[in-house]
Nucleic acid binder design. Structure first.
Lengths: 339, 339
DNA sequence: CCCGATTCCCAAAGCGCTTTAGATACAGCC
DNA sequence: GGCTGTATCTAAAGCGCTTTGGGAATCGGG
């Protein structure tokens, strides 16, 4: 069933039917009702390719997905995706994933924009002065960044969580508990979220006259193994920290394992705070010692990104508003006063 | 730069240029060379919407993604996606995710097929007599199932791992080590993979004159918490198992935690084998006691699915061939002879 | 009662590509 | 020389939708 068939069936022109369906004002309400009703009854659905060709709009949002043998998509992505899906589902928005060589994402960005395959895209895991953001900005495509970059000479729309504040607060709490040697096991420090987190820790320590010892910082891809290694090397050193702040629950698994291997008990010998992105399949309250966390749902962020993207597409939103979400600090058994 | 511009620039008709570019035989090789060269030099790229409208082909593969408040996309999906991406990247294949209400995926399937939004789709996590497979079959769209269903009265193309064989072999090894009470902590048993796994365990036990005690089976969504609960309830019972076979590394985390809480040591008091889908961020060799696993890369499966999907789209593959991959049994420190 | 403004609708022209149905030219054959 | 074949290219017709540029009623005001 296409427009033509529907319109001859209704004894109307394609123009009128199209307008009736798309809510244009120059059509009689009674006619519109008839058209709407007939469309529904016959299950008419406009062909998206045709519409796309005519309007230049795609009705999809895009994501350039870095891939490659050396690239692991991390599990945060799937949670974010769930969130996107939650919103998109109700709005018949589809999501196009364009896999790109991690070494050369630019080509793919240019391709999908030139092809008008998507109306808007989102950019995740930004780095300092992120070139993808600059590119999207320059290409004039609608986009939203999940996270923030730094050192770009223009504003852009983003949503981010208050990484600095979260890690500041967590660290301050540890300091208040009497800890002096506090270590940070961070994610890949080319990513801005990691930079902000380090900044938060540093600021909290500074406020108490302490300083973040460079030897007490580790930055690695957030996998269990790296959490273990980092913790191990920190805890075996002579000036071992009495508290660790950790950027991910998955790394925290490694930290707990390291502590156990070294016969250190939580929170007696070591206090641990981790950031929690709220994975349904791994919860901080179900660690052998329930973990104190800074918590922010990455899934909720996904839904919000989709919502704003949709708003931008339909022209309800513009400008470069940044949105920063506060982060909960949830205290559980993994922290205690320093001995 | 569109076809028309390119063709007037070359003093050729659109037809000829189009044919030259698409490799049709009825064009002079010399002309083709000229056209190709000019296209490259001017960065001409056919508009996908127009092409789609004209051919009815989409150049994309689709996935209907169940979402909803109660639905968590599990982290296996992201690994699978990485694999799809690995292949798709080199072939300019994009992937469309269509979020659907988990209660009513059918509508979405019908929509994307009717709209010709995708050339082919893949179906994951099949259940017994899976209605999505039946629907895709009936709608005549190209598809591949990742996993297998049972009880469908037609053949369909799939790729699956030998779940039954893997769990059979793992169980047999435990039996050979002298274990008599072996428990299974399985995934959601409406999914066929779980059914096959249980079958494997059951068969191995039967072969040794043992039987799988119903009280020694647990089937739950594969999250850490459920692994813990299941293990706890199994191990606290009077006829506690001496060995556990577990369907996922994430659940195995919970099993290990439960054992520790109950002061049971691995492998002294309890042998543990888990299935490992090969997550980069959580590896069985990095458990406090390295885990014996049945191993199969879900990422490799993703790449293979993409490859076959592409082959089907271009007509290189048809029919209903099923592919079953063998699974490695990797022995590490978490198993020992029964006391 | 006439006229301009409104209201409602239509025909037709695109959007950029593929493909059908020919055209043209040249060779080979009887 | 006329005819069939083959190679090469073209004009034009879609694909299904949106949108431009009117046209025909209808209406209110002078």
């Amino acid at each position: 069933m296409n427009l033509k068939q529907l319109s001859t069936m209704l004894q109307l022109s394609q123009t009128t039917v199209s307008r009736a369906l798309n809510g244009y004002p120059e059509v009689n309400e009674e006619t519109r009702r008839r058209v709407m009703e007939a469309a529904k009854r016959h299950g008419y659905r406009p062909n998206p390719s045709a519409r796309r060709l005519a309007t230049g709009k795609a009705g999809m949002i895009g994501y350039v997905m870095p891939t490659g043998a050396a690239v692991d998509i991390d599990p945060h992505f799937v949670e974010f995706l769930s969130g996107l899906g939650d919103y998109a589902r109700g709005h018949e928005l589809d999501l196009v994933l364009s896999p790109a060589d991690a070494q050369d994402e630019e080509t793919t960005y240019r391709r999908i924009v030139a092809n008008k395959q998507v109306d808007a895209l989102y950019i995740s895991a930004p780095r300092a002065a992120d070139s993808r953001i600059a590119l999207a900005h320059q290409l004039g495509v609608q986009f939203i960044v999940h996270g923030r970059s730094e050192g770009l000479d223009f504003d852009y729309p983003y949503i981010d969580i208050d990484n600095e504040g979260a890690f500041h607060d967590a660290t301050r709490l540890l300091v208040q508990l009497g800890h002096k040697r506090i270590a940070l096991i961070n994610g890949d420090d080319t990513q801005t979220f990691a930079i902000f987190r380090e900044r938060g820790v540093r600021r909290a320590l500074l406020e108490s006259g302490l300083a973040l010892d460079l030897r007490h910082i580790r930055s690695e891809v957030m996998i269990e193994e790296n959490g273990y290694r980092a913790a191990r090397s920190l805890l075996e050193a002579s000036d071992a920290p009495t508290a660790i702040v950790c950027s991910s629950l998955i790394m925290a698994l490694g930290v707990v394992r390291a502590a156990r291997d070294l016969n250190l008990s939580l929170p007696g010998d070591l206090s641990l705070v981790s950031h929690d992105d709220v994975f349904p399949w791994l919860k901080p309250e179900h660690f052998s010692v329930p973990l104190t966390t800074t918590r922010s749902s990455i899934r909720a962020a996904g839904a919000r990104v989709a919502e704003r993207l949709a708003a931008r597409i339909s022209g309800l939103e513009d400008g470069a508003r940044g949105e920063v979400w506060p982060v909960d600090l949830v205290v559980r058994g993994s922290i205690a006063g320093a001995r």
